[in-house]
């Protein structure tokens, strides 16, 4: 017998079809699909939230809210507009940032900010143990110092760009631009599909 196996891609299939399909199922109330999403994404969600929020108990609370929010609002996910992973992690990041921005007086944040200067080193350390992290770190290493600080303070530190500008004592316009060109460079380094 001379069989030929061919894959018939579904319409709009991206490079990584799995999570997107699962999330669409979640929107239809599929709890099994949700559990898979949970298994796949709860670690990055929790890790990210924890890095931004710092406090472990609070991070757990926020991460839990995020996962429930994924369930509740899955219908808003549009597979044509990006990956499920990005959708979920964007939500997680917003929640985490909302938490720190509302919870802390700005003076508090200023003080905390001083300690943030080491954020990148901590990150660098944390990621060395992780597979995907090795690549991320290598890509972070490829940024200029200012790009790297702007990106990591915003993303891992949860700071707005005016706050980052204050921390780095750099003009607002420069910080905006460094965030953009830093991310662009990361994107190219990581080979993210556009």
């Amino acid at each position: 017998m001379n069989d030929v196996i061919s894959l018939v891609p579904a319409p709009g299939e991206g490079r990584e079809p799995g999570l997107e399909d699962l999330l669409v199922r979640v929107a239809r109330g599929d709890e099994t699909a949700f559990e898979r999403i949970y298994d796949a994404l709860s670690a990055p969600v929790f890790g990210l939230v924890r890095r931004v929020v710092r406090d472990r108990a609070q991070a757990e609370e926020v991460a839990q809210e995020v996962m429930v929010e994924v369930w509740r609002t899955a219908a808003r996910f549009d597979p044509g507009r990006g990956s499920a992973m990005s959708w979920v992690l964007t939500m997680a990041h917003r929640r985490a940032v909302d938490r720190v921005r509302s919870a802390q007086a700005s003076a508090d944040r200023e003080r905390r900010a001083v300690r943030e200067e080491v954020a990148y080193d901590q990150v660098a350390e944390a990621v060395t143990t992780r597979l995907e992290g090795e690549r991320v770190r290598r890509c972070l290493d490829g940024l200029t110092e200012l790009q790297r600080q702007a990106v990591t303070l915003a993303y891992y530190g949860g700071y707005s760009y005016p706050e980052v500008a204050g921390l780095l004592q750099t003009p607002l316009g420069t910080v905006k631009t460094r965030m953009r060109d830093g991310l662009v460079r990361l994107r190219d380094c990581m080979g993210v599909d556009r």
Binding site: S42, P44, L48, A63, A92, G133, V151, Y155
Partner: peptide, 15 residues
């Protein structure tokens, strides 16, 4: 945004 999400993968930690 996809790129930013990768930054989160780097700090993944099981809850």
């Amino acid at each position: 945004c996809e790129t930013a999400a990768r930054l989160a993968l780097a700090v993944a930690e099981p809850p």
